[in-house]
Amino acid sequence: MTETLTIEKDQCVQDGKVQFCAGGTVSLEHYWVTEVIQYRNLAVYTNTSNTPDQGPGTLVTLGPNTFMLEIKTLKGTYISAFGEFDR
């Protein structure tokens, strides 16, 4: 079984090496069915450079080629993830 979380970013700003996005579409594919996840808050931070950098408005330092995701759904569930981009 494969589950895929897809985020189409929107409302993005670049601050140094880190990009911050506060909007977009979030969907989850589970058993070949895709469901759009409605949210109250979305924050996606991406650092596609080769050096660490701090995200705007956060104390978190993102390593090279990494991302941080925070979502609060309409039901109040929190989804968070850290990851590294394929190279």
Results as ranks from 00 to 15, higher is better:
72 K>I: 13
56 P>W: 11
49 S>I: 04
75 K>F: 08
31 Y>I: 05
31 Y>H: 11
72 K>M: 12
72 K>D: 11
69 L>H: 09
39 Y>I: 03
72 K>C: 10
81 A>M: 08
73 T>F: 12
66 T>W: 03
51 T>K: 00
77 T>A: 14
61 T>M: 06
79 I>L: 12
55 G>D: 15
82 F>Q: 12
68 M>W: 03
41 N>W: 07
57 G>W: 09
80 S>R: 15
78 Y>F: 14
51 T>V: 02
58 T>F: 13
50 N>C: 02
42 L>C: 04
65 N>V: 00
44 V>H: 10
40 R>N: 04
83 G>K: 14
67 F>T: 12
64 P>F: 01
59 L>S: 13
81 A>F: 02
67 F>K: 04
50 N>M: 03
81 A>R: 05
84 E>G: 01
38 Q>K: 15
55 G>C: 13
75 K>T: 15
46 T>V: 13
70 E>T: 03
43 A>H: 03
51 T>C: 00
61 T>G: 02
45 Y>E: 10
33 V>W: 14
58 T>I: 15
76 G>Q: 07
59 L>H: 09
31 Y>D: 15
73 T>A: 05
50 N>E: 06
35 E>F: 03
33 V>R: 14
70 E>H: 02
55 G>P: 01
71 I>K: 08
48 T>I: 01
71 I>R: 02
81 A>S: 13
59 L>V: 13
42 L>I: 05
77 T>V: 15
62 L>N: 01
79 I>H: 10
48 T>E: 04
76 G>E: 11
40 R>P: 02
42 L>W: 09
56 P>N: 14
70 E>Y: 05
69 L>N: 06
47 N>S: 07
40 R>M: 04
77 T>W: 14
39 Y>R: 05
63 G>D: 13
41 N>G: 02
79 I>W: 06
35 E>G: 05
41 N>H: 07
31 Y>L: 10
67 F>V: 03
63 G>Q: 12
60 V>W: 12
51 T>S: 02
75 K>C: 08
79 I>F: 13
59 L>K: 09
43 A>C: 02
33 V>I: 13
43 A>Q: 05
33 V>F: 11
42 L>M: 14
43 A>D: 06
61 T>E: 11
67 F>M: 06
34 T>D: 08
68 M>S: 08
63 G>N: 12
50 N>G: 07
48 T>N: 05
73 T>Y: 12
59 L>W: 09
74 L>C: 06
35 E>P: 04
82 F>C: 01
70 E>C: 01
36 V>P: 10
42 L>F: 09
